[in-house]
């Protein structure tokens, strides 16, 4: 059984960096000292993309908006008023850069609610409509077909991802195959959060692991740490025609991400924290997906957990995913 801790990337610090190493970094301070210190050190160990990202704010300081962005505090340090200002700025920037009128909100976790998701592998037919819905809902980069969901075509009776194929392009389902959509499993013990050197990603009360895209430095440690390959890196500034932009956005979820930062599935928190179902569930033409509040004993998700033989991916890692799979008997 592999020890999850041993899979973590090694400490980033190799340069003139004040941090004590990936996990033991003191909480990111309000003025961003820690974050900037890490930024400086990171160029030495990482590729050009991350380095360019690290420098970007410095090279763009001539523009007022970038100055505001550069000086922005960590999400958790922002007061209500400050968040309102940030949301206004982001709305304006979206208009400037994408020509779209959007509304960016910041819905908070609902007290006492913990989200869970389950997927019926006997029903899923691998059509990838969920991935497509995610692509649209979450304002993903169009040319790269980006989506938080990857659907693997698996051989019946096997759980071997090495032999799985995510690029299949034939009519589905094939008789000897089953299909496994994989997205962020919202682990109880998320390794991606542990490795972030600047605390740009964390787990919220309702179980959702989020990213502050304005705090993320794009070092990609979290991407490497995730055993489900659920995190994506914005190699380019996302390209989306104005008419296709989903205008209902939130700070921690589907607002258009800047270049050079990590992004991930948030169970569509801009929808689910308002009581709605995730976009991938609504789009599923087979009805394979079940979503709800794990704390509510009468919820659909609880019924599945209690009446189906559910399992989680890579259980041996001990990360306690809040995403469950099952087969009908």
């Amino acid at each position: 059984m592999p020890d999850p801790a041993s899979e973590k990337p090694k400490t980033p610090c190799s340069g003139n960096c004040s941090c004590a190493g990936g996990n033991t970094t003191p909480p990111a301070s309000a003025n961003g000292t820690t974050r900037r210190a890490v930024l400086k050190g990171i160029g030495a160990t990482l590729g050009i993309a991350a380095y360019a990202k690290a420098l970007a704010p410095l090279t763009e300081l001539t523009k007022q908006t970038s100055m505001d962005e550069f000086l922005q505090k960590h999400y958790k340090e922002l007061s209500k008023d400050e968040i309102a200002t940030v949301l206004k700025r982001l709305t304006r920037e979206t208009k400037e850069q994408y020509g779209a009128d959007v509304t960016i909100n910041d819905p908070k976790p609902i007290d006492g609610v913990k989200f869970g998701y389950a997927l019926n592998l006997s029903i899923c037919n691998g059509c990838r409509k969920c991935a497509e819905a995610c692509h649209i809902e979450n304002n993903h980069d169009r040319p790269s077909h980006q989506s938080y969901i990857r659907v693997f075509e698996m051989t019946k009776g096997s759980m071997d991802f090495e032999k799985a194929n995510a690029h299949y392009d034939h009519p589905v389902p094939q008789p000897d195959k089953y299909y496994m959509p994989v997205q962020c499993q919202q682990c109880e013990h998320p390794p991606c959060v542990d490795v972030c050197p600047v605390e740009a990603t964390w787990k919220e009360k309702d179980g959702i692991v989020v990213v502050d895209y304005n705090w993320c430095i794009g070092c990609r440690y979290c991407e490497a740490a995730c055993p489900y390959h659920a995190r994506r890196f914005n190699w380019q500034k996302p390209q989306i025609p104005a008419a296709e932009i989903n205008p209902v956005q939130s700070y921690l979820s589907n607002r258009i991400r800047p270049q050079g930062v990590m992004e991930k599935c948030t169970f569509c928190l801009h929808r689910t924290r308002n009581g709605r179902l995730p976009a991938c569930l609504e789009a599923c033409p087979t009805g394979a997906r079940v979503f709800g509040d794990l704390n509510d004993p009468n919820s659909e998700i609880r019924w599945v957990l209690e009446n189906k033989r559910v399992f989680v991916l890579k259980e041996e890692l001990g990360l306690k995913p809040q995403f469950f799979y099952f087969f009908d008997e």
Binding site: N125, G126, C127, R128, K129, A131, E132, H135, P143, S144, H145, Q146, S147, R150, V151, F161, E162, A164, N165, A166, H167, Y168, D169, P171, V172, P173, Y228, H229, R232, P285, T286
Partner: peptide, 19 residues
């Protein structure tokens, strides 16, 4: 019986196969 369908949106990203 649920009909066969053609899948949509083939992924184009670099890491599509774990490992």
């Amino acid at each position: 019986k649920f009909p066969l369908v053609k899948p949509v949106l083939p992924p184009r990203d670099r890491i599509s196969v774990p490992k």
